[in-house]
C-alpha cells in the first residue's frame, strides 16, 4: 500500500514539476505584466481607460503579429533578423505602387506575396542548404534595407488617405482599432497552430531533435522552410499596418524592429535553442513591451528610457527564470 501511494505522489509531483518547469517563464512574464499593469494604473491617470488600452494593443500589434510568427521560427532553433527590413520594404513599396495607381487590393496581395517570397528565400537557404539562419537573414536584412532605400531614394512616400487600404492602419470596427483585431486573431490562430496541429508539433520537434523528427518520416526541410515563409508574411503585413497607420511608406521604418520582436518571444519563454515554445508567453512578452512604452510615455518619462527599461526587464526575467528552473530541477537544454 505504502509503495503504491508513494508512487502516486511521485507521479503527481513529477507531473507538477514538468508542467511548472515548462511554463515557468510564461508564468513569470505573466506576473511581470500584471505588476506593470497595476503599477501604471495607479501612477498614470489615463492608463487604465478602455481607450488607452485599445490604443496600447494597436501600438504593439505589428510587434505582436511578427512575434507570433517569430515564435515558430525560434522554436525550430532558427532566427529571422530580416523582419525589420521586410517591414521597411513592404511599407515603401506599398506606398510607391499605390502612388502609381495600383488597385489597393492588388497592391496588398502583391506586398504579402513579396513577404512570403522573402521568407521562402530565407527558408530555402537555411533549411534546404543548411546555411545558419543567423547569417542568411542577416544578409537579407542588409539586402532588403538597401532595396527599400534604393526604391524610395531615402524619401518617404505619402499614401492617399481616401484609399480603403488606409483603414487597415487607422480604421476601427465597433470602436476597436483594426490592427488590434488583426493582432488578436493572428495570436489566437498562432496559438492554435502551435499547440493543436501536427505542423506545430513538428516545429517543436524540429527544434528539439531535428534528426529524430526526420527519422520518423516527417519532411523536416519543408517544416523548416514554412516557418520563414510565415515570418516573411507576418513582417509584410506589419509593414502594411505601419505604413497605412502613418499614411506614408518609409525606408527607415522598422529599424530595430527585429530586436523588439525577438525580445518579446524570448521574454515569453521560447528557447533560442529551439524545442521549447510558448505562444501565450509571446503574447505576454509583446504586451509587456507595449505596456512599458505606453505607460512611460503617459508618465512623461523621456522616451529614451523605454528601451532601457525593456532591456532590463528582459535581463531580469531571464535571470529569475534561470533561478526558477534550478528550484524545480526540471530538464533543460
Amino acid at each position: 500500500m505504502t509503495v503504491t501511494s508513494e508512487r502516486v505522489v511521485t507521479t503527481r509531483s513529477a507531473r507538477l514539476t514538468a508542467h511548472i518547469g515548462s511554463h515557468a517563464q510564461t508564468i513569470a512574464i505573466g506576473a511581470v505584466l500584471v505588476l506593470l499593469l497595476i503599477f501604471f494604473s495607479f501612477s498614470a491617470d489615463r492608463f487604465a481607460s478602455v481607450g488607452n488600452l485599445l490604443n496600447l494593443i494597436r501600438q504593439i500589434s505589428p510587434t505582436l503579429i511578427v512575434a507570433v510568427a517569430m515564435t515558430f521560427v525560434i522554436s525550430t532553433a532558427g532566427i529571422d533578423l530580416s523582419v525589420g527590413s521586410t517591414v521597411a520594404l513592404s511599407g515603401s513599396l506599398l506606398a510607391i505602387v499605390l502612388q502609381q495607381g495600383w488597385d489597393p487590393t492588388l497592391a496588398l496581395i502583391a506586398i504579402l506575396a513579396l513577404g512570403a517570397a522573402i521568407g521562402f528565400v530565407n527558408g530555402w537557404f537555411s533549411s534546404y542548404q543548411g546555411i545558419p539562419a543567423f547569417i542568411v537573414t542577416l544578409a537579407m536584412l542588409s539586402i532588403l534595407r538597401g532595396t527599400a532605400l534604393r526604391a524610395t531614394e531615402g524619401y518617404s512616400t505619402p499614401i492617399d488617405g481616401e484609399l480603403w487600404i488606409v483603414q487597415l492602419g487607422q480604421g476601427r470596427i465597433a470602436g476597436v482599432p483594426v490592427p488590434a483585431i488583426l493582432a488578436v486573431v493572428i495570436a489566437l490562430l498562432g496559438w492554435l497552430v502551435l499547440t493543436r496541429t501536427p505542423f506545430g508539433r513538428y516545429v517543436v520537434g524540429l527544434g528539439s531533435n531535428g534528426e529524430s523528427l526526420r527519422r520518423t518520416g516527417v519532411n523536416t526541410r519543408r517544416v523548416g522552410l514554412t516557418v520563414y515563409v510565415l515570418a516573411g508574411l507576418a513582417a509584410a503585413l506589419a509593414g502594411v499596418l505601419i505604413a497605412t497607420r502613418l499614411s506614408s511608406g518609409s525606408s527607415n521604418a522598422g529599424t530595430g524592429f527585429e530586436l523588439e520582436v525577438i525580445t518579446a518571444v524570448v521574454l515569453g519563454g521560447t528557447s533560442l535553442f529551439g524545442g521549447r515554445a510558448s505562444m501565450l508567453g509571446t503574447i505576454f512578452g509583446a504586451l509587456t513591451l507595449g505596456v512599458i512604452a505606453n505607460g512611460l510615455v503617459l508618465l512623461h518619462v523621456s522616451p529614451f528610457y523605454v528601451q532601457i527599461v525593456q532591456g532590463s526587464i528582459l535581463l531580469l526575467a531571464i535571470f529569475a527564470n534561470n533561478k526558477m528552473w534550478a528550484r524545480f530541477g526540471a530538464v533543460r537544454k
Binding site: R201, V204, G205, S208, N209, S212, R215, T216, G275, R276
Partner: peptide
Amino acid sequence: MVYQDLALCDDIDVAGNLFLGREPR
C-alpha cells in the same frame, strides 16, 4: 527501427513521441 541513440524529442511528451510523424488527427 529503434535507434542506438533512441532519437526521441526531449521536449515533447511521451504520447507525442510515440506518435511522432503519425499523430491521430
